[in-house]
Amino acid sequence: MKTAAVILFILSAILLLGTFKYLVELKRPGVYPPKQVLKKRAAGLAGFACICLLIALSLSYFL
């Protein structure tokens, strides 16, 4: 179970880095795809990263 928790921690870190990448791209002018698409992608990645982080924390704390 420790390896599953470590993998989920790594996955959540990668997803958070992707979220920050999209947030930085939002600040640039004239970027493609449109800003609404970037906002949806960033929100989706952040949500999935939080879910992975919560599962990893519960695995490492309770088991």
Rank of each mutant, 00 (worst) to 15 (best):
A42M: 03
P34K: 07
V37A: 09
K35M: 02
P34E: 01
L53T: 14
E25P: 01
L57E: 10
T3Y: 13
K21V: 07
C50P: 09
L53W: 12
L15D: 03
K35T: 07
P34S: 01
A5R: 13
T3C: 08
L53H: 08
R41N: 12
S12G: 02
C52H: 00
K21E: 08
L26M: 13
P34M: 02
K40D: 15
L23D: 01
P34C: 01
A49E: 03
M1G: 00
C50G: 15
S58R: 12
V37F: 04
L54H: 04
Y22I: 14
P33Q: 10
I51H: 04
A4R: 07
I51E: 09
V31G: 13
F9T: 01
R41M: 01
A49S: 12
K35P: 00
L17D: 01
A42I: 04
S60Y: 12
K21A: 12
T3I: 06
R41G: 05
L45T: 11
A4L: 09
A46P: 04
P29Y: 07
L54N: 06
P33L: 12
A43S: 07
C50H: 11
L23M: 12
L26C: 08
L63W: 07
L23S: 07
L63Q: 14
C50A: 14
S60K: 15
L26Q: 05
S12L: 02
L63E: 11
K21T: 05
S58W: 05
K21C: 01
L54G: 09
P33K: 07
T3K: 14
G18Y: 01
L57Y: 10
G30R: 03
V31T: 04
C50R: 12
L59T: 05
I51W: 09
V37Y: 06
F9K: 15
G44T: 15
F48C: 09
S60A: 12
F9R: 15
L54E: 05
I14N: 01
M1Y: 13
G30I: 04
K40P: 01
A43D: 05
I51Q: 03
I55E: 08
I10K: 09
V37W: 12
G30V: 07
L26N: 04
Y32T: 09
Y32G: 08
I51K: 03
M1D: 01
P34G: 12
Y61S: 05
A13M: 07
T19K: 00
I51T: 14
L38W: 00
I14Y: 04
C52M: 13
K2A: 04
I51S: 15
K27C: 06
L38F: 06
A5D: 00
R41L: 10
A5Q: 00
L45R: 02
L45G: 14
A56K: 11
L11D: 04
L23E: 08
A56R: 06
A56E: 08
L57F: 13
L26V: 02
A5C: 04
I10A: 14
C52I: 13
T3G: 08
I14Q: 06
A43W: 02
P33H: 02
L11I: 13
L38A: 03
A4D: 10
A4T: 06
P29D: 07
G44R: 06
L57A: 11
I7C: 07
G47R: 00
I10V: 15
K21H: 06
S12T: 10
A49Y: 14
A49C: 06
L17C: 15
I7L: 09
K2W: 03
G18L: 15
L16E: 09
G18A: 05
K27E: 08
S58D: 10
E25Y: 07
P29R: 04
